[in-house]
């Protein structure tokens, strides 16, 4: 529960979703360590965009290019 109070700057995360390309497979949900994404009506959507740390795991594991993240270092 403790880590829930850890949140960083809001409104900066550079992650874009293209739901029209999404197949709803949920691969992105599986790899996301911060619960950023959700599948709604078989398409990817944000649950909380501000939690995104731009690791890029979702982008890397989306076979349909439905997520684009501008990843930084580390």
């Amino acid at each position: 529960m403790e880590y829930m109070s850890l949140s960083y700057i809001k409104g900066v995360a550079n992650i874009k979703l293209y739901p029209d390309k999404c197949s709803g497979c949920g691969g992105c949900i599986e790899v996301c360590p911060h619960n950023v994404l959700i599948i709604e009506d078989h398409k990817v959507a944000f649950l909380d965009q501000d939690n995104c740390i731009e690791c890029g795991g979702c982008m890397k594991n989306c076979p349909f290019d439905a997520i684009v993240v501008k990843t930084g270092v580390g």
């Binding site: 960083y8 990843t71 930084g72």
Partner: peptide, 14 residues
């Protein structure tokens, strides 16, 4: 850089 919840864009802004 040692945390698990900061984003690159956030660090850039900061």
């Amino acid at each position: 850089g040692s945390t698990t919840f900061t984003s690159f864009s956030g660090v850039q802004r900061e």
